[in-house]
Amino acid sequence: MAVSRMSFYSEKLEMSTSINVILPEHPTESGKTLLLLHGMGEDENAWLNQSRLTDYASQTDITIIMPRVDRSYYTSRVGESQYFEYISEEVLQRCRVWFHLSNKRERTFIAGTSMGGFGALKTGLTHPDQFQGIFPLSAMPDIERKWRENPERDAWYRSLFGSPEQVRHSINDIAYLITQQSKQAPFIWQFCGDKDPFYDMNLTLSDQIEQQGLQHKFVQAAGGHEWRLWDGAIQQVIKIIDEKQPFTIR
């Protein structure tokens, strides 16, 4: 297993950016790929520094790609860096040239914490043909509600999303994206701590996914919005992707 820290010029971001990649000992096109996203205030190093991911990933054939999106909410703004296209298109396209990666849906997964859980849901549900599974970990899945609850974020959210009305029924509206899914949608393995400030939103999200009849599991743990929980969660995610731990639905 190897850890590659990479910097390069992104055409979608129109600037240099960095990606960390965990490579299996013998990478092949038959291995799995996990696109792993960070939360607010973090960067491409968060997972390597805050969890024991490197250890969990050793002895597997999973390539783990950790990009950075700064404070973008995995969202593109007119005339600025196209973070959503970067995450949902360019990252995998480029990494499939640089490394031995599968281009098969059944071997490609996406996960993320908090803002990255939003990014994972947004990306996976916008490109359901690209991902076999989505792992939102303590995700912040409801921009409109967050906007109402945090009025001090109004100027910032306006710059990202325009207005609450513009969020509704857009790719930033996770509840709406769920209603657009068919039975072939990626499975959703949802995780949240019971003391997490987003716990209530995650209960709602769980209901929405169930109502749509998607493959889904909601795993809860005792704790808040913290790396201690995510360290345990990512260990389970790796086992599921590695097929050491069977994924059972319902």
Partner: peptide
Amino acid sequence: MAHLEVDYYS
């Protein structure tokens, strides 16, 4: 150019 620092096990 893309620049990589690769930590690997020998």
